[in-house]
């Protein structure tokens, strides 16, 4: 029953790249990549999407547009990514298995790639019970693993899951999520191995607040020989206060925040600033871990501070990721 990705047949541009995106280029060049989560608007107004993206200008290599995260309804990921790619932004389209079956998902992947999306993150998705439409039917026709295999099949074998051929494959860089911070801890590195076998090329993790747990996960993954096979971007984010942290670890599935972090926030004069300092320190410490290729910043309702956090962490060095102003500067040069 094992179906690995046929690496020899992988669609590539001669450099071993499977997409023409900037995220893959940055990662393969060995530069420390920064991705950020973009909150989707509850609106049909494209300007809201652009306004939300603008706060990251010059500090992130790609933005993840979430797909009904927390099982709450928002603008779709494919639409947000398509809007943003029109302006030149690099996006990661998130695909969750909760709301669509394999027919719908494959159609969206082809459509997304046609609209200029270079990266796809394959997720299982939260259960409908935690969101704002608990009465909805949970689909889960595929799981994150079979979704990865399906999209890798579209790209590398140029066939649908049914075996029917495509004329042009979607040239996408494939990502998956992992959560090293929740049980069963012993299985997590093996699960990463399965995701890589299914086609994952980069991994964005759940919030990392527990460095020792993360190091243990990375050590085990290294022993399994996984770290040469994919790029790992641990998730980070600023905590607004000790109360928020407490609420998050109680109510947001999969978020693990050690007591020490909460105590440090409680002891701080300005908890908001302390939350950002913790985030900066974590980014700097994560960068030192072998096999970490970047960070994924999830700053829910604190998006405005992301640029400052990245700046202070110093991880970009003198590199400035693409922003629309780069195009304007080029246009001026040519004029």
């Amino acid at each position: 029953m094992t179906i690995g990705v046929d690496h020899d047949k992988r669609v590539s541009d001669g450099l071993g790249h499977s997409s023409s995106g900037r995220l893959e280029r940055v990662l393969r060049a060995g530069q420390f990549a920064v991705t950020a989560e973009l909150a989707p608007p509850d609106s049909a107004n494209p300007e809201e999407v652009y306004a939300r993206a603008r706060v990251f200008d010059g500090y992130v290599d790609a933005m993840n547009a979430t797909d009904g995260s927390g099982a709450n309804c928002h603008m779709s990921s494919v639409a947000m990514c398509a809007l943003l790619s029109r302006r030149g932004y690099e996006t990661v389209m998130q695909v969750s298995c909760r709301d669509r079956n394999r027919i719908a998902i494959q159609g969206d992947v082809l459509g997304g790639a046609a609209l200029g999306i270079n990266n796809i993150l394959c997720l299982t998705g939260d259960g409908v019970q935690v969101g704002d439409h608990p009465q909805a039917k949970p689909v889960f026709d595929l799981d994150s693993m079979s979704l990865l295999e399906t999209v890798a099949g579209l790209r590398d074998k140029q066939v649908f899951a049914s075996g029917r051929a495509l004329s042009d494959p979607p040239r996408v860089f494939l990502g998956a999520a992992e959560n090293p911070f929740v049980p069963p801890h012993g299985f997590r590195p093996h699960r990463l191995a399965k995701k890589i076998a299914a086609g994952a090329q980069f991994i964005q993790t759940q919030y990392c607040f527990d460095l020792s747990r993360f190091r243990a996960f990375m050590d085990q993954s290294r022993d399994l020989g996984l770290l040469d096979k994919c790029f790992i971007l641990p998730g980070v984010g600023p905590l607004a206060s000790a109360r928020t942290a407490e609420w998050m670890r109680r109510h947001v599935p999969g978020v693990h925040i050690p007591d020490a972090i909460i105590r440090r926030l409680e002891g701080a004069r300005d908890q908001r600033v302390e939350g950002r300092n913790i985030c900066i320190e974590l980014i700097q410490q994560l960068r030192e871990i072998e096999g970490v290729s970047g960070v994924h910043v999830m700053a829910h309702r604190q998006e405005a501070y992301v640029a400052d956090i990245i700046e202070k962490s110093g991880v970009l060095g003198d590199r400035a990721p693409w922003s629309p102003s780069c195009n304007k500067a080029l246009e001026k040069q040519h004029a």
């Binding site: 949970p138 959560n179 929740v182 299985f187 093996h190 699960r191 999969g254």
Partner: peptide, 16 residues
């Protein structure tokens, strides 16, 4: 509840 066939999701609680 998600009929996962390939391993746990990322939402498992700390108590398992």
């Amino acid at each position: 509840p998600k009929t996962m066939r390939n391993g746990p999701c990322g939402g498992v609680l700390q108590n398992g």
